[in-house]
Nucleic acid binder design. Structure first.
Length: 260
DNA sequence: ATGGCTAACATGGTTAGA
């Protein structure tokens, strides 16, 4: 790659079709090298390849009807390594892994879990366990790995606008946080926390109740880097601006910058 | 206060998100 800097981002767009203009605006302002999208909500047959190409990106995608769907945009060619998690049969399109130069990009849209103890919560925990095994295998094969996307887990109370109100709830419950801790224990760093950050930095705000205006959000969109990659991280920030645009996604992009 | 917003699918009202 010509550039000495590699910028990698993630963004839950909550429907790619609705958010195409915002994606173009964002990439114009932040012409990053790799962007992992979640909740594209688009079947592969209808994926807007042409629109993405016109933005100057190549794209891999793994979608389904109505729900979920993930895509990886890149300036340089990406090779698809895996759709979904090996050995974890799942009709929901939530994981896509690509090899871009020497970098393994694991784009994840972790299940929401709905409520603690529900069937969807159990599915979320099973998903995270399967993801753990998968990432462990990848880390044994490749030094440079980034696992990024919508984790639907706020790592700790700094990532929650009102920890008391959220205590024990889905997205912050002990079992979810433990699953994330176990994933990171494989050798992944939440690069956002390498750096000093403004307090109350969040990546998602509920559409309801003017929560964005009150900054009543959570940080649930994460960029986790392997040691070999993370040691080259030069910065990480949440890009809040797209949340101020008309008809926004409820999530904002997160971007990390790496030297090469 | 189990409401409240948004999107998909459908074309009214349900499902799901987080």
């Amino acid at each position: 790659m010509a550039s000495s800097v590699m910028r990698i981002g993630c963004w839950n767009v909550n429907s790619l079709k609705v958010r195409l203009d915002h994606l173009a605006q964002f990439l114009q302002a932040h012409p990053i090298e790799v962007l992992a999208l979640q909740e594209t909500k688009t079947v592969d047959e209808q994926f807007p390849v042409e629109a993405i190409t016109q933005l100057g990106y190549q794209v891999l995608f793994h979608g389904q009807k109505t729900y979920n769907g993930v895509a990886i945009l890149s300036r340089t060619p990406a090779r698809e390594l895996q759709r979904g998690i090996p050995g974890f049969t799942d009709p929901q399109a939530r994981v896509l892994t690509a090899l871009i130069d020497n970098l393994v990009v694991v784009n994840v849209y972790v299940p929401n879990g709905q409520t603690v103890g529900s069937d969807k919560y159990q599915y979320k925990l099973a998903f995270l366990q399967a993801l753990n095994s998968y990432v462990q295998t990848l880390l044994s094969q490749y030094p440079q790995v980034v696992v990024l996307g919508d984790f639907n887990i706020a790592p700790d109370d700094r990532d929650v606008h009102d920890p008391k109100a959220w205590e024990g709830e889905v997205l912050v419950s002990a079992a979810e946080r433990q699953a994330l801790t176990q994933l990171m224990a494989l050798g992944l760093t939440d690069v956002f926390r390498i750096f000093e950050q403004k307090p109350h930095s969040f990546s998602w705000w509920d559409y309801r109740g003017a929560r964005f205006d009150r900054n009543a959000g959570l940080r649930i969109d994460l960029i986790l880097a392997s040691q070999a990659l993370g040691s080259h991280c030069q910065g990480c920030e949440v890009i809040v601006t797209p949340r101020t645009w008309e008809r926004p996604s409820d999530h904002t992009p997160v971007v990390a910058r790496f030297s090469r």
